[in-house]
Simulated scan of single mutants.
Amino acid sequence: MQEFEHIQSLWQSHSVEVKISSEEMLAQAKKEVKAIRTKSLFNIAGMVVSFLAIGSILVLFDFNSWTTPVGIGIIIATVAIYTLILFKEHLLISKNDFTIHPAAYLANLKAYQLSRLHLHNKLYWFYTFAVSIGVTLYFYETLNQMDTWIQLSFVLFTIIWIVFCATILRKGYMNREKERIDLLIEKFQRISNQLQDKH
């Protein structure tokens, strides 16, 4: 038993330092940036497809109530604004090459992180509120023709879904994204420091 404790204490006191070259770290960081850019493009593409799909409803169908086209209009405007914000964020992480402009790239990455934080906090509530009003106006004509219990079920489901997305899904996503970008910023700062030490 004493031998085991002795070996364990030796193992714990022995620290191994893994050295990663700045080139390897830069390759890893660039791969992560590429993944973020690709995800960003998919988000933008998804929003554009949503914009076109919702817009086609407005063009292809006739409605009896004025509330339906107004609701669709609010949703379309909200999706368009959100898409523009996502596009501006995408430009932040696509603008500069780290190897050419390290300081500018780090500044853009930090600005991207702040923008994402703002998007998931204040702008998320604007988006949710606007889309909720739009959906309510859109379904007003349809729900008016349904039984009261169906109307209440629809409203209850919508409220539960919004609360679920606003709490569990949003917070988990925010934490994962913040952690990922923090690690990326840290990597780029370490690479920048290593490159400066070489000169």
Rank of each mutant, 00 (worst) to 15 (best):
K110Y: 07
L119K: 00
T136W: 13
Y140K: 07
T148I: 12
N144L: 14
N108S: 13
L143N: 04
V131T: 11
Q145K: 15
W149T: 12
R116Q: 14
Y112S: 06
I133K: 12
G134S: 08
T142I: 13
R116V: 07
L109G: 00
I150T: 09
L137I: 08
H120Q: 11
T142C: 06
T148D: 12
V131L: 09
F129Q: 02
L137Q: 04
Q145R: 15
V131I: 15
L123I: 12
L123D: 12
Y138F: 15
N144G: 15
A107Y: 08
I133N: 07
D147M: 07
L106C: 09
W125A: 08
T142M: 09
H120I: 01
N121Q: 08
A130Q: 03
Y138V: 14
Y112R: 08
T148C: 07
M146I: 00
V135I: 03
Q151H: 06
E141D: 06
M146R: 11
K110E: 11
L117A: 10
K122C: 01
T128C: 02
S115V: 03
Y124S: 02
V135C: 02
T148F: 15
A107R: 11
H118N: 13
S132M: 09
G134E: 07
T148G: 11
T128R: 04
N144I: 10
L114Y: 08
W149H: 12
Y112N: 04
W149D: 13
L106V: 12
I150F: 14
N144P: 01
L137W: 03
L143W: 08
A111V: 02
F126N: 04
Y140L: 11
T128Y: 03
N108V: 04
L119Y: 01
E141G: 03
I150L: 15
Q113C: 02
S115C: 07
L143Y: 13
L114D: 08
F139L: 14
V135N: 00
